[in-house]
Design a protein around this nucleic acid. Sequence first.
DNA 1: CCATATCTGGACTGAGCAGTCAAGAATAAG
DNA 2: CTTATTCTTGACTGCTCAGTCCAGATATGG
Lengths: 197, 197
Amino acid sequence: MVPGRPLEFDRDEALQKAVEVFWEKGYQATSIDDLTGRMGIGRQSLYNTFGDKESLLGEAIEAYFQAASAPMLAILNAPGSPADNLVTFFRKTVDRCSSGDHKGCLMVNTGVEFAGTGADSPILKAIRDRFKGLERAMRQTIKQAIESGELDKKTDPLQLATFLVGVFQGMLLMCKTGASRETLERVAAGAIASLKA
Amino acid sequence: MVPGRPLEFDRDEALQKAVEVFWEKGYQATSIDDLTGRMGIGRQSLYNTFGDKESLLGEAIEAYFQAASAPMLAILNAPGSPADNLVTFFRKTVDRCSSGDHKGCLMVNTGVEFAGTGADSPILKAIRDRFKGLERAMRQTIKQAIESGELDKKTDPLQLATFLVGVFQGMLLMCKTGASRETLERVAAGAIASLKA
DNA sequence: CCATATCTGGACTGAGCAGTCAAGAATAAG
DNA sequence: CTTATTCTTGACTGCTCAGTCCAGATATGG
């Protein structure tokens, strides 16, 4: 083993706290002191372990994706009826948005913040790639629903997938800006209705 | 007339420039120097004329609404077929998002930024009220479309209105984060399709 | 021409920020 | 025990920012 003083904190736990802070307050509005306070570590420990603020955000987004987004993707790929999976996806989105005090989605929130900077940062690229991935998964599920006869043969998988991702992002946005559960349920109902056309 | 040195700049023109800066860069990322630079006025002139940074943002949002959002509302209330007006609304949204270099919507962008602050600022309230107004207008147009037989009698106007506003906000968000015109057209197509069920 | 009121330009202030440094503490290997 | 390595703590640096102050400029009204 390599010598040296061991870390006094759990890296993953600290990262999880960082996710929460960025999620609630946004990147720019979060200071290093906000982070160290919630993460329960010292300033230098943060820089040693995670690099600078933007690197930490990158790791936070990755961790957020694993914890929050990946399970949503899993819903789409679940066994059973593809069309039901799509419905479940939106119901679950309502549930997630209704709990958790209107934090919205870390990737959506961060995307808005970084989109204005002109420089196409790796952060922004990562976020876009994640949503592209969601669109692909949606498209795949839609194709399966068409094959199984749950959706009309004339359905355009790409068009419907892009549309559903758009509605999904709209819901996450409205969650962040304070929408009620009833509001989100109405939006979800519209998305679900578009599957039964 | 009240004595005193007259303003050397056009208040409305300067405000319009402020709108552009906030729209592109976001509130926090915009410095007073950014503003004075683009507005073509001195620092003290800005504070004399518009108050502090947040007051200026308030006026900018109001001006943005008058210039950008009010015309969208007018589309819904236009004479002729209400259902056609809804379709036109989304087509126009695609056009607006495709031009103008991915600035999205000042109110959506600002809403995300202020939603994290906890304190329910007047800015956030104003933004929410605007979108509530849009939802009301949507609902009214939908009711008319039901009466005229263009939409199914069983349509729930509130549900459909909330849904369409959600899709609309999703489009504005995707515009900000860099979506292509094709992407936005697919989302709009989904919204329009939901009117023909 | 003078008094009054407002606007302009530039310097200034005080606070908050991201990131660094250095001295000491804790560990493992030999 | 000694040495090499890494972590921790707290002070520090340099910068940026929002907002203020003040002296000078430009207008109106008498």
